[in-house]
């Protein structure tokens, strides 16, 4: 039974394991980016040679290796990183020391900016993108799925499912660029790529600028959700309790929504949570296609520049969102399905 204390204990347990998991993830990610190259035979100076100008001599490269800590054993490097996460750390700017408060995700090897403020600065973009798209795809995907299921085999159903197949199969950079060239550059209805206005600055512009990315991203997901919802509805609408609901004389709308959809949506909650968590860690393709300055674009830049602390930061943030999403999904599942809660 869902006593508050047990819920609390469960939460604490889950949170502790989430933190442990996050540290394991940081260690693994750290190992991938810092240990693997070393195992592959690259020396500390080889690693550092990525972070100097092109005419740098061996001495300068070595200095850089020392500055970036590549010359220390890997566990010392990880320890330093982990300490930054827990206690913060200080970074030399030349003119002095900069304090990077906990949780410090480190400083970029290239721009020497602290990573976390960059991420936090970009998070609203990714969140706006994810939230708007999620709203649209839930609305579009679920309603399409419901209509498709109820009109199974009809023209509407076939048209919707064909569109959904296209939506699932077509990559964002295709649909995105195509819709940009039609709606932004051709018809001039939507904002060109790279447009973003913060919500607090002008909510209308915010929505206008994000409309096309929302629709494009939502199209991809709506397609999947439409198929999921359709399958779920086809299953639940054949359940005995739907017949019961009808036998009670409920309106068909209530039967479909309150009884059919309610049950069909339960598995979708899980998938939605994870999808959203994944997206918050950076909608890489959408952000790159539409040149939105979000986490995903940051990740792409970081990878292109071999900027390991940034890559590490993005990975950890993404992992954090997924861990949180998992937790939320589990809790939400208990809310949605009483059999889970009270079992």
């Amino acid at each position: 039974m869902g006593l508050p204390t047990t819920v609390f204990a469960y939460l604490v347990k889950r949170l502790i394991s989430a933190v442990v998991l996050l540290f394991i993830i940081t260690a693994v990610v750290f190992a991938i980016f810092f240990l693997l190259p070393r195992l592959g035979g690259a020396s500390a100076d080889d690693l550092a040679s990525r972070y100097v100008g092109k005419s740098a001599g061996a001495a300068q490269i070595h200095e850089t290796a020392v500055r970036l800590g590549f010359t220390d054993p890997i566990w010392v490097q990880y320890g330093r990183f982990a300490k930054g996460l827990v206690a913060g750390s200080d970074y030399y700017t030349g003119a002095g020391y900069d304090h990077c408060p906990a949780p410090c995700l480190g400083y970029s090897f290239i721009t020497q900016n602290p990573v976390l403020p960059d991420l936090l600065d970009r998070l609203p973009v990714t969140m706006s993108l994810a939230a708007g798209a999620a709203f649209l795809w839930l609305l579009g995907g679920i309603s399409t799925g419901v209509v498709s299921a109820l009109k199974r085999g009809s023209f509407i159903d076939r048209a919707a499912m064909t569109t959904a197949l296209a939506g699932v199969s077509l990559p964002i950079f295709f649909t995105g660029l195509l819709s940009l060239s039609i709606f932004s550059y051709g018809l001039g209805w939507t904002a060109p790529g790279g447009s973003y206005t913060p919500f607090q600055e002008n909510p209308l512009m915010w929505a206008y600028d994000l409309l096309l990315p929302w629709i494009t991203l939502a199209f991809l997901y709506a397609a999947a959700y439409a198929r999921l919802t359709r399958a779920g509805m086809l299953e639940t609408m054949n359940e005995d309790y739907i017949r019961t609901a009808r036998a009670k004389g409920l309106r068909e709308h209530d039967v479909v929504v309150r009884h059919g959809l309610r049950a069909a949506l339960t598995p979708i909650v899980t998938i939605f949570g994870l999808d959203l968590g994944l997206l918050l860690g950076g909608a890489i393709l959408t952000e790159t296609t539409f040149s939105l300055p979000g986490i995903g674009q940051y990740a792409v830049q970081a990878v292109a520049n071999n900027d390991l602390p940034k890559v590490l930061g993005v990975t950890i943030l993404g992992a954090l969102f997924i861990v949180i999403a998992n937790l939320v999904v589990d809790l939400l599942y208990a809310v949605v399905d009483p059999r889970v809660r009270t079992a």
Binding site: Y241, R246, A247, G249, A263, T266, R339
Partner: peptide, 21 residues
């Protein structure tokens, strides 16, 4: 409008016939 009011029905398997949520 008659269903549930003027005529009602009891189904075979009450577990599946009642909404689990």
């Amino acid at each position: 409008l008659l269903r549930g009011k003027k005529m009602a029905m009891i189904f075979q398997d009450p577990l599946s016939a009642m909404h689990p949520f």
